[in-house]
């Protein structure tokens, strides 16, 4: 039997970690190097972690949904604490027309009224008349899931080197580049799309699933995490400025939380983050190969949803 392939993976964001674990599960000898001090030093750390393939059909190509219906299963198999409670889509009273539009473009949901909303999310009782409930969707906390994947890689016999730019030696059969915008010198037409997020702690409000709040200009989502934490995101700005959050973006995000539940007025603001989503012109990710070099890039805002599918493509190349 041939010896297992030696694979170097560059970049310990979601694409790199999922690729590394997928290859290690298949028996490859994987070394994952990360230029930052820890896993998730880039955009992946700022993500919402929503595993909502059916909701994405509202604005993403059908392929995003098709390629991500199995990703909730992948995450559940490889990481603890992946929630599968579905997701909710709501709108403030004067924007309820947006719910109809969202429903026309998506599938696998139930249209529910105030009683069912209150049953699913008791804290939202009496606040919204109509919602879409996507029962087969889920969510995870990227700040728990990425370190968990790193531990899984090591348990599978892989190596993780942080603060490392260059590979330890030149003996690798494959070089898998998952470095996002850092790979742009090799990948034409890659651009960054700015996103901003806020992390809140709010013991007064309990939610069990991600909630999208529709608004014609600024759709915003709130994802519950453990210990009364909530991630509120995310702006989408065609800019590669990754500087601090603006007051406008912050107002939009915080207002959305407040509209969802006035209890958020008492929330503590724990973190504000800005990230650049690596994106191709069609906002779809791509696995490309040049000799023994493989590039996984262009995750846009679908890193957690589409990484399992992309890692499968990498696996097919390496084990062809």
């Amino acid at each position: 039997m041939a010896s297992p392939p030696k694979v170097l993976v560059r970049g310990a964001g979601v694409a790199g970690l999922v690729s590394a674990v997928t290859l290690a599960l298949r028996g490859a000898k994987v070394t994952l190097i990360e230029s930052g001090p820890k896993v998730g030093s880039g955009a992946s750390w700022m993500a919402g972690g929503m595993l909502t393939p059916w909701c994405e059909a509202e604005s993403a190509p059908a392929e995003v949904t098709e390629r991500s219906v199995d990703s909730l299963g992948w995450w559940q198999a490889n990481v603890h604490d992946v929630q599968a409670n579905g997701s909710l889509v709501l709108a403030p009273p004067r924007d309820t027309a947006e719910i109809a539009r969202f429903g026309r473009r998506t599938s696998h949901f139930e249209t529910i009224g105030p009683d069912e909303i209150a049953r699913l999310e008791p804290d939202l009782q009496g606040r919204f008349a109509k919602a879409l409930f996507f029962p087969t969707e889920g969510h995870l906390d990227p700040r728990e899931a990425l370190p968990a994947l790193a531990r899984r890689l090591v348990a599978l016999g892989g190596t993780l080197l942080t603060d490392t730019l260059a590979p330890p030696d030149e003996s690798f059969d494959w070089d898998v580049d998952c470095t996002g915008l850092n790979a742009r010198a090799n990948l034409s037409h890659l651009r960054g799309v700015r996103g901003e997020m806020i992390l809140l702690r709010c013991p007064d409000v309990t939610l069990h699933r991600p909630v999208r709040l529709l608004h014609p200009r600024i759709p915003i989502y709130i994802v519950p995490r453990r210990n009364h934490l909530f991630m509120v995101g995310a702006t989408m700005i065609e800019s590669e400025n990754d500087g601090p959050m603006t007051l406008r973006s912050m107002s939009e995000l915080l207002n959305a939380a407040w509209v969802l539940h006035p209890g958020f007025a008492e929330a503590e603001i724990l973190d504000m983050g800005t990230g650049l989503r690596p994106s191709y012109p069609d906002n779809m990710p791509l696995v490309t190969q040049e000799g023994r070099h493989i590039f996984v890039n262009g995750m846009y805002r679908h890193g957690y949803l589409l990484s399992p599918w992309l890692a499968q493509q990498v696996e097919h190349i390496v084990f062809a």
Binding site: L190, R191, G192, I237, E238, S239, E240, N241, G243
Partner: peptide, 17 residues
């Protein structure tokens, strides 16, 4: 032209498209 994009010409990638 949003301000975030104008500073340091950070919107260049989108504008070139």
């Amino acid at each position: 032209l949003r301000r975030e994009s104008a500073g340091q010409k950070a919107g260049q990638a989108f504008w070139s498209l």
